[in-house]
Design a protein around this nucleic acid. Structure first.
Length: 236
DNA sequence: GCGACAG
DNA sequence: ATCTTGTCGC
């Protein structure tokens, strides 16, 4: 089993990381509607950690957007590349995610991230960062409102309300199931907010979280368990 | 200055 | 994210 390394030149400090975000932010494409929901391929990516072993495991699971059947998947295990710092999550997750995406047997199509895109202190969250680095259309679907505010959406599935940074709408609080806590959707790269919301609804026929995220979450946890119990543990 | 803060 | 038992419900 291979342990992927941290990319050369990867930021080592918070200051460097913020500078990278400020430099890449301008490359986000916001004028494309994105692929039509319910067609083609949709890929979920997620990451799991074992801080004690300094391990990170990423998974990418490709679904047929129409049937939500799994049509391809891949994982990658690596060393933790950055500490968790609110606003700098991408530097912790992206190296392993890129490795997993590289190992996919088919093109990913739209990529759904567990976190934020434009809804970010510098408008460059994980989903936007991954989109700029890969050129793929991406969206972010987060479980928490982070530092943003919102009015409670209507109680039925499909209900939504603006996710606000002050007066600026950076995403949408979206109810994906009747009566359950909303998820927080934001644009990543090459997809509009309306498209991001439509994709999220198409991916939640049964559960609060997108099927993509659920599949990727289960797979990266499994990959982490496998890695943690593998004979040649982490060397130095 | 202090607390909050995607995963 | 992760640490964790039982428990209520489909």
């Amino acid at each position: 089993m291979t342990i992927v390394g941290v990319p050369a030149g990867w930021p080592a400090t918070e200051e460097e990381a913020r500078t990278v975000q400020d430099e890449l932010r301008g490359r986000v494409v916001l004028d494309e509607p994105g692929p039509p929901p319910g067609t083609g391929l949709v890929t979920g990516v997620d990451v799991a950690y074992d801080d004690a072993l300094d391990l990170v495991a990423a998974a990418a699971v490709v679904l047929d957007a129409t049937t939500l059947d799994v049509v391809g998947e891949a994982t990658a295990v690596g060393r933790v590349s950055f500490p968790y710092v609110p606003g700098l999550l991408a530097f912790r997750e992206i190296p392993a995610v890129l490795a997993a995406l590289d190992r996919l047997p088919c093109p990913p199509g739209l990529v759904v991230c567990d976190g934020y895109g434009l809804a970010h202190p510098r408008r460059f969250g994980l989903a936007s960062h991954l989109g700029v680095l890969t050129g793929l259309p991406t969206i972010g679907v987060a479980k928490n409102p982070f530092t943003f505010t919102y009015d409670d959406p209507g109680p039925a599935r499909g209900g939504s309300a603006p996710l606000l940074a002050g007066a600026e709408e950076v995403g949408r609080a979206l109810r994906t199931r009747d009566g359950v806590k909303p998820v927080f959707v934001s644009v990543g790269h090459r997809v509009g907010l309306a498209g991001a919301v439509a994709h999220t609804l198409a991916l939640t026929p049964r559960f609060r979280l997108p099927e993509t995220t659920r599949r990727a979450d289960a797979l990266c946890r499994q990959a982490l368990r496998d890695a943690a119990s593998f004979p040649p543990p982490p060397g130095r």
